[in-house]
Deep mutational scan, measured.
Amino acid sequence: SQVHIGNTTFTFDNPEKAQKYAEKYAKKKGLTVQKNGDVWTVE
């Protein structure tokens, strides 16, 4: 599972961890999370 934030990609061994990280980061920065398969993009 991966989380894309700008030009940075974070890889997680667990989809739940990836989703939590993406949502927490997005909330903190006032951004949105797009999910595509097991990839979350914060923008």
Rank of each mutant, 00 (worst) to 15 (best):
I5V: 08
G6T: 05
T32F: 05
A22K: 02
V33S: 02
T11G: 05
F10I: 14
P15M: 05
S1Q: 07
T11I: 15
N14T: 15
Y25I: 13
V39N: 11
G6W: 09
Q19E: 09
F12V: 00
V39E: 10
K35V: 07
N7Y: 13
G37S: 02
A18M: 02
K28S: 10
Q19N: 05
Q19I: 06
F10W: 09
G30M: 00
D38T: 11
K28V: 08
V3Q: 01
P15G: 04
Q2A: 11
L31V: 07
L31T: 04
T11E: 10
K35S: 06
V42T: 04
G6R: 07
D13V: 09
H4L: 13
K27Y: 07
E16Q: 12
T8L: 15
K35L: 14
T8A: 12
Q34D: 03
G37I: 01
G37N: 07
T41L: 11
Q34Y: 13
V42S: 03
E23V: 06
K35I: 06
D38A: 08
P15I: 05
V33D: 01
N7L: 07
Q19R: 13
H4V: 15
K29E: 08
S1L: 10
K35Y: 11
K17G: 07
Y21G: 01
V33E: 01
N14L: 07
E43M: 14
W40I: 04
G37H: 03
N14D: 14
V42E: 01
T9M: 12
F12P: 01
V3T: 01
V39R: 04
D13M: 08
Q2D: 06
N36E: 09
L31I: 05
N14A: 09
F10K: 07
Y21D: 04
T41S: 06
L31Q: 03
P15T: 05
V39S: 13
K20Q: 13
K29R: 11
T11W: 15
Y25K: 05
D13G: 08
E43L: 14
Q2T: 11
K24G: 13
K29F: 15
E43H: 12
V33G: 01
T8E: 11
K28A: 09
K27W: 06
D38Y: 09
Y21K: 00
N36W: 10
N7E: 09
K20D: 13
K29M: 13
I5T: 03
K29T: 10
H4R: 15
A26T: 01
G6F: 14
E23S: 04
G30D: 05
E16R: 08
A18S: 00
D38S: 09
T32W: 02
A26P: 00
D38K: 06
T41G: 02
Y21S: 00
T8Q: 14
V42R: 00
L31A: 05
G6I: 05
K28N: 08
K28M: 10
Q34C: 13
S1E: 02
T9P: 02
Q19C: 13
V33T: 03
F10T: 04
G37Y: 04
T8W: 15
A22W: 05
Q2W: 11
T9I: 15
E23W: 06
H4K: 15
T8V: 14
G6L: 08
A22T: 02
K20F: 10
G30W: 01
G30I: 02
K28G: 07
A18D: 00
K27M: 07
Q19M: 10
V33C: 00
F12T: 04
N14I: 08
F10E: 00
K28D: 13
N36G: 02
N14Y: 06
E43Q: 12
Q2S: 09
H4C: 14
V3F: 03
Q34N: 13
D38E: 10
I5G: 00
D13S: 12
P15E: 09
W40R: 01
P15Y: 07
Y21P: 01
P15S: 07
H4T: 11
D38L: 10
K27N: 10
T9D: 04
K24F: 13
K20W: 13
Q19T: 02
P15F: 05
T8C: 15
G30E: 03
H4P: 03
V39I: 13
E23C: 15
T11A: 09
A18Q: 00
N14M: 08
H4W: 07
H4N: 10
P15H: 05
G6V: 05
V42Y: 04
V39T: 13
H4I: 15
Q34R: 13
Q2K: 13
W40Y: 12
A22M: 04
K35N: 06
Q19S: 06
Y25R: 02
K24A: 15
E23H: 06
W40C: 09
A18N: 05
V42M: 05
I5L: 05
Q2P: 04
K17Y: 10
A26Y: 03
K28R: 07
N14F: 03
T8I: 15
V42G: 00
V3S: 04
K35W: 08
K35C: 10
A26I: 02
T9L: 14
A18L: 03
K24H: 12
W40G: 01
T41Y: 14
A26M: 02
W40T: 03
K28P: 03
D13I: 09
N14R: 05
T41I: 14
T41R: 08
E16C: 12
I5C: 04
S1A: 14
F10N: 02
W40A: 01
A22C: 06
N7K: 12
Y21N: 00
N7A: 09
A22H: 00
K20R: 13
F12Q: 03
A22R: 01
K28Y: 10
Q2N: 08
G37A: 06
N7T: 10
H4A: 10
K20N: 12
E23T: 04
V42H: 01
T11D: 08
T9G: 02
N36I: 15
Y25Q: 06
E43V: 15
K27Q: 10
N14V: 08
Q2L: 12
E43F: 13
L31C: 12
G30R: 02
G30H: 05
L31N: 03
G6P: 04
V39K: 08
V3A: 02
V39W: 07
K17E: 15
